[in-house]
Computed example of a mutant assay.
Amino acid sequence: MIAWTDGTWTTPPAASSESGSHLDVTAREGSDAWRHTAYGFVHENAHALLAPLAVGEAMEVSFRAPWDGQFDQAGLYVHADEEHWMKAGLEFADGHLGLGAVVTEIRSDWSVGYVDDWHGSQITVRVSRWADALIVRARADDGEWRLVRVAPFDGDAVASAGPFLAAPTSANLVVRFTSWERSAADEALH
């Protein structure tokens, strides 16, 4: 387990409180992470609690959220610099819960698929860092791991990772993070 106090916030949230093994975090309205593509804007104020992530390591974050505000999102964030990062997890958009990832190399892209049946579950997102890639998996409760993304990532970059949340349009998103762990990276894609 990584202690919540071992991380550093990229942008402080509206509030956070630790109780037992979990951390409750309230997002600031208007928070997000995105660069240029399709929307034309740059947002760099998502709330990510980061600790070092080296090649050969994996990081895992588990959480619960209400998922009722447009674009409410939470998951795991990997950061090298302002133009090279990835966020992966759940986002509520247009009445559906989506599992996906945004990979940013100067410009952001977004891949997403509906997982409406995951509503109300504890979600776990896992990222393994290989020499040239990030391997993203996720699951609901104790279900099967689902491969979300294989994304290029510079193995020479100094990177950090950890839980994140953002609320681009709502003022009441509270995410309960229930665990934050570091381990050896997964050795295989399949």
Rank of each mutant, 00 (worst) to 15 (best):
G155M: 15
H190M: 06
Y39P: 04
W67P: 00
W118V: 09
E44Y: 00
L50N: 11
L53Q: 07
W9D: 04
D32V: 10
S179P: 00
E82Y: 00
E29N: 11
V25R: 04
S21V: 06
E44A: 10
A51E: 12
S111N: 10
W85E: 12
W130G: 07
R107L: 13
V148Y: 04
P152D: 14
T124K: 01
A185D: 09
A74L: 13
G7T: 14
V125G: 07
F63H: 05
H119Y: 09
V78Q: 03
E83W: 08
D154H: 02
V103F: 02
L76S: 02
L99W: 03
A3V: 00
W118Q: 07
W9E: 06
V102T: 11
G100L: 04
L134Y: 03
S21I: 05
L99D: 03
L147R: 13
W85Y: 05
H84F: 07
L134V: 04
V175F: 07
V78G: 03
G120H: 03
W9N: 09
E44P: 00
H96D: 07
G95F: 04
V102D: 05
D32W: 00
D132A: 14
F41E: 13
D68P: 00
V148T: 09
T104N: 09
L173C: 06
A171H: 05
G95R: 05
F41S: 08
A161H: 11
S183R: 15
M86L: 15
F177T: 02
Y77P: 07
S108P: 01
V112H: 06
R64G: 01
E60A: 13
D24G: 06
R129N: 09
A188G: 15
P152L: 02
F71I: 08
G95I: 06
E60T: 05
T178W: 04
T104D: 13
D94A: 14
A93N: 03
W34G: 09
D94G: 04
G30P: 01
W85M: 06
R176N: 06
L189E: 14
V112K: 08
S160I: 05
V115E: 09
D116N: 12
S128D: 07
W85S: 11
G89C: 06
N172R: 08
G100M: 04
D186Q: 14
W34S: 10
E91P: 08
G120Q: 08
F153M: 15
A14E: 15
L49E: 10
R139V: 14
H96I: 04
L97T: 07
R182T: 14
W118S: 10
D81F: 13
G89T: 03
A138M: 12
A161T: 07
L97F: 09
A171K: 10
H22V: 00
R176Q: 12
R146E: 06
W34P: 04
Y77I: 11
S160N: 11
W130K: 01
S108I: 00
L23W: 02
N172C: 10
R126L: 10
R126P: 00
G40H: 07
A48M: 11
W110C: 13
V174N: 06
G89D: 14
G30Q: 06
S128M: 12
G113S: 15
G143F: 05
D116T: 09
V136M: 12
D68C: 05
R107S: 05
